[in-house]
């Protein structure tokens, strides 16, 4: 899952580099939404200080 997030980030940046504004912005917000979901998943876990 975390690998996917980094890949989305890298792809969005490549789209930005190529000048594709729509895909760059869409990739960024997809990344942000998935990251927030992943974070909420972690918060919902029982308290674990080994993080």
């Amino acid at each position: 899952m975390m690998v996917l997030l980094f890949l989305i980030l890298a792809l969005s940046m490549l789209f930005a580099r190529k000048g594709n504004y729509t895909f760059a912005v869409a990739g960024f917000f997809l990344l942000l939404i998935l990251s927030v979901c992943w974070f909420i998943f972690h918060i919902s876990d029982p308290i674990n200080i080994n993080l």
Binding site: L9, A16, A24, S35, H42
Partner: peptide, 18 residues
Amino acid sequence: LCLLQRIGMLGAAFGLLM
């Protein structure tokens, strides 16, 4: 959580690079 922080940092850099 450390990896998520790296994503946050690179995401902020992405915004500036836009």
